[in-house]
């Protein structure tokens, strides 16, 4: 452990923690505004969508295997399969497609 680097890491960890902790701990009220409630209802799905697209297409290093994996995930998710089943199946299919000569 080099001391300078340890200081960087401490600052980094502390900043990250405070950004997470302060609003999460200080915010106590139940939000009553209908607009705010609606906003908070939609935000988790919007965050996930923004993180997933288009990043999922580049998640395997091959557009083809990622697209097939995405399709498999969407079909299984549509039929309500569990998170772990969907992610393992998508990954396994992407793995198989990776062996195709044109993949």
């Amino acid at each position: 452990m080099r001391p300078t680097i340890l200081i960087y890491i401490l600052v980094m960890a502390l900043t990250t923690y405070l950004v997470r902790m302060i609003p999460f701990t200080a915010f106590r009220k139940k939000i009553t505004s209908r607009f705010a409630r609606s906003f908070f209802h939609y935000i988790p799905y919007a965050v996930l969508a923004a993180m997933t697209f288009p990043a999922i297409l580049y998640s395997t290093g091959s557009l083809l295997s990622a697209t097939v994996g995405l399709a498999v995930a969407m079909v299984l998710a549509y039929f309500g399969r569990s998170l772990i089943v969907v992610s393992l199946a998508a990954s396994f299919v992407a793995f198989l497609v990776g062996f195709l000569p044109f993949g």
């Binding site: 799905y45 996930l48 969508a49 993180m51 997933t52 990043a55 999922i56 998640s59 395997t60 290093g61 091959s62 295997s65 990622a66 994996g69 995405l70 498999v72 995930a73 969407m74 299984l76 998710a77 549509y78 309500g80 399969r81 569990s82 998170l83 772990i84 969907v86 992610s87 393992l88 199946a89 998508a90 990954s91 396994f92 992407a94 793995f95 990776g98 062996f99």
Partner: peptide, 23 residues
Amino acid sequence: SIRVAMGIMIYAMFVAIILPPMK
């Protein structure tokens, strides 16, 4: 080959979270 295929897992999980309520 395994490592790159594992890259899609986290995103596939996101799809599994957002798709059912979309219906």
